[in-house]
Design a protein around this nucleic acid. Structure first.
Lengths: 213, 213, 213, 213
DNA sequence: AAGTAATCGAGACGGTACGTCAAGTCTTCCT
DNA sequence: AGGAAGACTTGACGTACCGTCTCGATTACTT
């Protein structure tokens, strides 16, 4: 995506060319990088964010601490990379041709992602950390959220193109209304987010859109 | 509310009789308790959750570490108490006689609380920590959330009694829809929550309720 | 003697009528005092001086910490009392009418006391502590050593009276020569002190005395 | 003796070649080691054994606590090393060709060492601690005493070779008799050990040896 | 007999040091 | 040059005891 290829951001190389204008000087070890991300992921799942340590990650990854400090700033930074690597492919909304269906599926997928998947656990840990760490918050919003936001917007945009949804709709607010309750339940109240909830959210949203018109 | 209200130990005899026939001879120092809560509050505001340490709180409060460990389990536990003490009086919805007004005011107050107040900063730190610490999560939900949830419900209940709102409305879901987007912006996207947002949320909610009917 | 009757010194009341029949002025609890001394003794034997704590003694004795601090200055001070109470009756030299016999028996008793008895363990712990604590050293020498020194001197004095030993003998030096090697082995080298050793010491001493004459 | 002589861990390359194909890459900091020993020595002299703490040593040495705990087991263990480093060169008996002279000088040096020197203060503290700590006692006897014992024996051995002293003499007992009273005065009675005392001890010992013959 | 005063067991208090853990830095050797 | 290893300083952790303090109960001497 971006040439910065910022190892700390990881993502980057899926394009594959890997032409990196003139190469990465003296070669970062891709092997070490993956080992670290995997170790971090595994440890998060096994012992929880609070118990994860840089030393633990290094030991589990079979990597020197220095190698970690050379490329990442904190354990949260590592998890950011892990999240970007693991989770981007998920949460791509379907294209069924119907806004209601698209949203129902997408919201349901989101709920599943947040509550059931390993990547969701990473996400929750990161959001937790974001409350304490403004630098991480920046990176989280720049590297993850804005991208996800664009993806989330797709069903609505498609619906507008199809003429189902009015042109003037405030998409950001719409997304807040659709997604907010889900994140709220997951992050704050800790309540489950079954399909009935997501379906009802979509129903309410559609009803409101109709009423709007 | 219950008299104990659930501080970590409560000393809580505000009822006052203090008839305790002879028990509890060695009482907790109320002075130390308040000093700790204040120190924790202040430090959170000054240096942020991550930089707050038990040692720092103890030093600032002029209290022995053991005294803290005797009564609290973690720095988050201390902040829980601080939150319960500081914030309970806030966020009580008004009673204007109109659901729309009540909600607009209440949501705006909530947004202000979350983004502007010291207690809101404590709340955000706690929600962050809740993502990493299941024990804290329990306490957070038992001691704070359920109480707040009941308070949040009041405008809707009053509206039902007035006959404005249908009896069958799912109040929990309604609250998720009204509050979720606000928490989402505060905790996840980091966007501000101006009055326009809260007002629009209320408008949408009312429109949906009408459509429902 | 002294009105304080120095409980912390325990012993001390021999001057006296010891009418303590019931009236101890304003009542120190004799029961507590004995419980503390016994607890200290027991704990020393069980876990060693380093692991003995005032809190541990108080708990074991079923006594409040304050009670201990009221009457003693340190755990070593308690053990001083225990030593004075337990050990004074030991180490009284016999009177066989013969200097050699008296000394052989006495030195052997001393060796046994130092290496085998519980009171000897207390003594060793106190000598250890004396190296670190000048205040204790004072008390140790004033209350225990000078007394014991006088007792140790008895066989030599008797022998002088009997005409066996020359009047001019330096008794202090003689005692250093007789006792020093025993304490040295016990405290420094950690070697055992069997009867052969003590007997040989006596033999050497007597030979030297003869040669002197 | 070798300059390395057996610090608590040494690193032990006395074999020397250090061919270790690749092992032991991360070596102990000699600088930190010396700083710790000096700090411990100084603190002992300044504030006394009881007041010396590991934290204090670390702070004074400008060293992390962990570094101390990595290489030593206790403050006494540190002082053991300091003693071994500082004191081994002292207390080597002279060779005047005459047993009496040799012993008089050596005993006098010993007395001076024990009562006047900084290393002597360390020694006294260690002997004190030896009464409470069997592990230290072991190390004290293995690493220090046996070595010193051999050195102390030298004048007697030389005298035997010269034919002055009988072959059958029990050297260990002889040393106990010569040294015991000195240690006794220093460690137990706290009396000074002037030259008259040491001289008289030697005189008595020689007289006894003559009488023996 | 009631009042007074000192001691008692208990245990919370402000502290100090403990011994451990992890942070982030630095140095060394290896590849 | 990058990476694995690990010793280094730093600082917080949570615990154990220190010595002081207050509490309510007990008990022996006033009065």
């Amino acid at each position: 995506m971006n040439k910065d290829s910022g190892f700390s951001q990881g993502i980057g190389e899926e394009g594959g060319l890997r032409t990196r204008h003139h190469g990465n000087r003296h070669r970062r070890s891709e092997e070490a990088r993956r080992a670290v991300l995997e170790a971090a992921d595994d440890l998060l799942a096994e012992i929880g964010f609070a118990a994860v340590t840089i030393e633990g990650i290094a030991a589990r990854a079979g990597v020197g601490k220095q190698t970690i400090y050379r490329w990442w700033q904190s354990k949260a930074d590592i998890l950011m990379d892990a999240l970007l690597e693991d989770a981007t492919q998920d949460l791509i909304p379907p294209d069924t041709g119907d806004l209601g269906s698209d949203l129902r599926i997408h919201l349901s997928n989101l709920a599943k992602f947040l509550t059931q998947s390993d990547a969701g656990a990473v996400f929750r840990a990161l959001v937790g950390q974001v409350q304490h760490d403004p630098v991480l918050a920046d990176r989280f919003r720049t590297d993850y959220l804005t991208r996800q936001r664009e993806v989330d917007r797709i069903p609505l945009l498609r619906s507008i193109e199809r003429g189902q949804l009015a042109r003037g709709v405030d998409l950001d607010l719409a997304l807040d209304q659709l997604l907010g309750p889900i994140y709220f339940r997951v992050l704050v109240t800790g309540q489950p987010v079954p399909r009935e909830i997501t379906d009802t959210l979509v129903k309410g949203f559609l009803k409101e859109m109709e009423a709007e018109a």
